[in-house]
Computed example of a mutant assay.
Amino acid sequence: MSDSQAIVLVHPVVVRVTHWINAFAMICMLMSGWAIYNASPIFPFHFPVWATVGGWLGGSIAWHFAAMWLLCANGLLYLAYGVTSGHLRRKLLPVRARDVARDAALALRFRLPHESGRYNAVQRALYLSVLLLGALLVASGLSIWKPVQLSWLTALFGGFDFARRVHFVAMVGVAGFVVVHLLLVLLVPRTLPPMFTGRTRRRAHRTDEASNRARV
């Protein structure tokens, strides 16, 4: 049977909305976090002022907490939808080391095929990693924010000073994910419009066209 092009729904509205809220909240958290870091650096460097928000320490902390609650609420919404709908299982699992190594090698040679709405092994590993990093950021951030009230959590991270380092390393991981994510969009720009519209053209089997075609 012959193949034909079909307009299919690849990103449900919940995924699109939570994606853009996450992007906004993550940028706010990174820039406000850099300003907070500059007030008491743990390494011998500062972030440029133009890359920070808040204007002063109190303002940056206010930005950071506002973005944190937004990110947590949005993340819980995404996880609830992803688990109940099967989205996380379908899109991000399974992740096998050999598949990640194979797709990473193809990506380095610019030979990795990409189709909107279908994640390769490298993407699945990256998305799962950033979810885990997000949980680590929240936990280490709470241990820094309330080191007395949550002393057990602070102790779990090896004390206040080490918890700050864990928080910083997790932040670097998230920032790295954002950079890689943006680079992939630049390399494969056709993946961006579906994150607004939810739909893309995909080669579909004729017998499956009716069930896969999205309403426009």
Rank of each mutant, 00 (worst) to 15 (best):
V14T: 13
T18N: 02
H19Q: 05
H19S: 13
H19E: 01
W20G: 08
M29Y: 00
G33N: 07
W34H: 14
I36S: 03
I42W: 08
P44E: 01
H46C: 05
W56R: 13
G58D: 03
A62D: 11
A66R: 11
L70E: 04
N74H: 13
G75Q: 06
L77N: 04
Y78W: 15
Y78G: 09
G82N: 09
G82K: 09
R89S: 11
R89E: 01
P94Y: 04
P94F: 10
V95D: 04
V95W: 09
R98W: 12
D103E: 04
A105F: 03
A107V: 02
L108P: 04
R111P: 00
R118M: 03
R118F: 05
Y119I: 02
N120K: 11
Y127A: 07
S129P: 08
S129E: 06
L132C: 11
G134L: 09
G141Y: 05
L142Y: 06
W145I: 09
A155S: 15
F157A: 12
F162E: 09
A163G: 09
R164K: 14
V169L: 15
A170E: 04
M171F: 07
V172C: 15
F177Q: 01
F177R: 05
V179R: 07
V179P: 04
L183H: 08
L184A: 14
V185K: 12
V185W: 02
V188P: 01
V188I: 12
G198V: 01
T200H: 03
R201Q: 12
A204Y: 00
H205L: 14
R206I: 08
R206K: 14
T207F: 06
N212E: 13
A214S: 03
